[in-house]
Design a protein around this nucleic acid. Sequence first.
DNA 1: CCTACCGATCGGTAGG
DNA 2: CCTACCGATCGGTAGG
Lengths: 195, 195
Amino acid sequence: MGTMARKKSAKKELILKTAAAMFREKGFAASSMRDLAEKIGIEAASLYNHIQSKAQILEEIIDGVSDECQLHLDNLEKSKSTALEKIESLIRFHTKMMMNRFEEYSVMVSQWMHLDGDKLLRFATNRRDYVRRMEAIVESGIQKGELKSLMPYVVVLNILSSVRGLEFWQRSAKTHTAQEMEDNMVVHLIGGIKR
Amino acid sequence: MGTMARKKSAKKELILKTAAAMFREKGFAASSMRDLAEKIGIEAASLYNHIQSKAQILEEIIDGVSDECQLHLDNLEKSKSTALEKIESLIRFHTKMMMNRFEEYSVMVSQWMHLDGDKLLRFATNRRDYVRRMEAIVESGIQKGELKSLMPYVVVLNILSSVRGLEFWQRSAKTHTAQEMEDNMVVHLIGGIKR
DNA sequence: CCTACCGATCGGTAGG
DNA sequence: CCTACCGATCGGTAGG
């Protein structure tokens, strides 16, 4: 945020948004720049006035979501909440991210392996680090007797994977609200670790 | 099983196995027939003496795993176990499938959208049906008071998604055994629904 | 933002 | 199982 932030043109935002929807649906490799251009209503060559490469589009989509996740965890670690409260906050945060920024979040969790070179390495490192920091929260909860003695890695993997699974939730089938989904996620995943 | 079953040549099995590893790692679209052939040690054109198309390779990999899942659920529905026992059986079965048939199972859950035409439609229908049958088991457990009153859809999604997440478990890092992982999955996911 | 076009690579076939 | 090759499509650039 802030006016100092590098401002993206409306057209570039449109390209990123459209590409995210496409990458999520068909996968990065199966998405062509020609199809992307067509959906936006310009020629493929014209895309390159706004972006440098197909790879860069993927990077920007993923970095946007990834940075937000990092920021949330940074703040959470500074808070004085209990481990249980922190884990609930993580479940609710990721669930909301998945629902509010559906395309971008889905692309991050399902297309990151198509990043190339140093970007791939950096993402993998960040991801591993993020998981370890979540594990540390679980570990401290076990130590304090708030949580059952479970392998922190499994708990973290189950939480992040469950959120990811929401990709397949048909929000169009209006049988349940997003809030109901989120609350049920919390009851199931927190219920399984609370002592 | 059985000698009447259509026998696949050893070479075809090798192609399917190698392709599964490749599809899982790079994705279906980003995997080329030339790379596949090279890994096997033949020319790309020679692959077509054993398989009909790239699409058919994906179909056979997915059908193999999918059929096994269907069969397990068929048998489970006929059993006299409680809902809780059935759900535990499903968690253990899928976890074992993910670990024992890592490449094929991963390809099924992450590459099915690259099936084309009627195969895609059939898989999506089967998948939806499978989820509904799992939901029915959860629903009956809630009705009988074995389980908390949770949305069955969320419970099923969390279970299947958590198993899927095991794709990222580094089995090479021998800090935990497969059995420990499986047991922890059960404690977390069953613990969250048991009344 | 477009037309015109590049070299590379794709899945797959013909013919032996 | 190979050599030789097809038409299609890819990401991207030159030049305006």
